[in-house]
Design a protein around this nucleic acid. Structure first.
Lengths: 194, 194, 194, 194
DNA sequence: TCCTAAGCGAGACGGTACGTCTTGTCTTCCA
DNA sequence: TGGAAGACAAGACGTACCGTCTCGCTTAGGA
């Protein structure tokens, strides 16, 4: 039998821990954050932390999955799927801009690594499906769709990193435009001819 | 006046240390390698290690710079600069295949992160110059050249990572072809019209 | 509010560490004992050691203070305070004989140095008070009492060291007799005439 | 065949090293002085140091032996041997006062330990002989002469240490008087009756 | 006068111990 | 009974010295 009160308390504790990590990520690199930092900030006991997460990486992973679901929701808005845009990345760039400290911390240190690892299968699956839908029936793509998907996801992250590392010299719209301009020719080329 | 013999000894020691790291990278992740592992393998005293490198990261960085110079030499062979190929990446893919354990180790753990950080300015500078040369005079690129350079470098690394993570299902030639097919449309598009 | 169980655990750990040092002191010189030796013997983590003591010297110091309290208790037994004996050193010599390995280790190396430093104010205070009590009222001692106290304490340690260094060729009783014979004339002389 | 010039050069180097140690001892504790400190101060190569001395302790020891010979010369002046004074310690106290920084450094740290160890046999031998001469023929001392000698030497060092540790509140003459007053009763007592 | 051997500085090196730091486990207490 | 508090073992880290060593430079004394 589940204990509602207890569950609610658990969730509250988990939220505190997550928020602590997010807050710390605004201040220093993921790698430089210690478990002690997190539990101090979250005002939580050491054992409590380990009761909920295997280690710091596990906490980060769970946070990233949550984040990617949020990002994914932006992307799946039907209106966004135009013909020129496979990924409605403008909204993603905007979101990143709003939480730039968080992302900046993630992009440095082990964070991006995890983002990439965990995000890979997630985005790849999604993008591969989307690409499959765009591919005329019976046609063989010039480049295998998983490779193409990886390329697109990688290009987005690359641009993102460059943007953050260079103090965001362009607006989200401009970034989106450039990204589309770089990606779409390849996409069109690949899907047109086998 | 410099002491030749001493210098030579120093270099020998540094080489041992580097080789130890390389050897260990074939066996386990960069992050899991300790300084103790390295000095044991190199048969070198702890203080000697720290006399030459600030820490493990510094050692890795210096190795990466050396590696990138090697890679760069491949790329700058005049014959390689054809019209379809901005980066003669086939040779790079081949080189990676030959030392796949090394690269696999690098791609995981903090290694790639460093590779990226240190390589960024290096490749960007080089690619930006190459692109500038390809751009007809007086023409403004559709995407700023630094962005384009970053995009190309990122695409290469992305493909590389995917290749290694997926047990290299294609030959270096195929990888090169795909990469060119993905990159070149964007490059042509960007350079043609402002 | 204090945590009783935790305190008890701490004390247990501290006891282990102390016992480890004592055991090691029977085997080799204090200076030759490393922190690693101690924590290995005590089966304790490195950080635990440093959580309880600043360094090896601090551990030794705390042990010496404890030891001196034990020795002090012997000395303060009322029966022992006869007219011929200011310090009932026979019991001290006996105690040393019983734990000769321990003391031998202490007398060599930095141990005695610490014994002296830490013991100085302890014995001086005690001896000065005792001497003050023995001094007839209104009389001025021939030698300032702190000096006399220092002299007595030093004489004891000197004899002790000689005894240990020379394989204890006399019994504790004999040592005590000799010490008294050497010290008491001076004491009597000093207290008698100003 | 010996090389005179070479020998002379060696001696010069040794003198530099000794002077460096002496100078450093005025500034910090013996234990806190490193070989590096010494060779920097002496402007001497590391290997040169180890060519002359086994280690820092060896250097100190050789310095102490030299010092003790100097002190010994003071003591053996015939005029000094009065009936009330076994050791003409006033001159010793004066000498110490003149070089108080040096002695202060020696008394702290491992220096005194060495002073004691090395000085023991030296003084004991000398004092034992002197005491033997004072002992009427055929008489057995109340306390074995080696013990008495040790006691006297120890008392001197004890007083010395106390004096230095307490900022030398008395003049050398006063110290000498006190020491004589403390020691001589015991000496007289021991030599008089068996 | 040249040459050879020693003394020497410089400092790289392997090694050992240090005191600090972080991790993940475990125990105890409290609400 | 679940979570806070925090002691603990384990072990990597970067620093500080040590004593050994190799290397060239300088210099003296014999050829």
């Amino acid at each position: 039998m589940t204990n509602l009160k207890t569950d609610r308390r658990s969730q509250r504790t988990q939220r505190f821990i997550h928020e602590a990590l997010m807050a710390l990520m605004q201040e220093k690199r993921y790698d430089d954050i210690t478990v002690q930092d997190i539990i101090d900030r979250a005002d939580v006991g050491r054992s409590t932390f380990y009761a909920h997460y295997q280690d710091k990486e596990d906490l980060m992973t769970s946070g990233l999955l949550r984040l990617m679901q949020i990002l994914s929701e932006m992307v799946t808005k039907p209106s966004a799927m135009g013909e020129t845009s496979l990924l409605p990345t403008q909204e993603l760039f905007e979101h990143v801009q709003e939480h730039q400290n968080l992302f900046r911390g993630m992009v440095r240190g082990r964070g991006l690594e995890l983002f990439f690892e965990k995000g890979q299968e997630y985005w790849n699956q999604k993008l591969t499906a989307d690409l499959q839908a765009l591919l005329p029936k019976g046609q063989v793509p010039a480049v295998p769709l998983p490779v193409l998907a990886q390329f697109i996801a990688g290009a987005f992250v690359t641009m993102l990193r460059w943007w953050l590392d260079n103090k965001m010299p362009y607006s989200p719209q401009e970034m989106d435009e450039m990204l589309q301009r770089l990606i779409m020719p390849a996409v069109r080329e690949c899907l047109r001819e086998g």
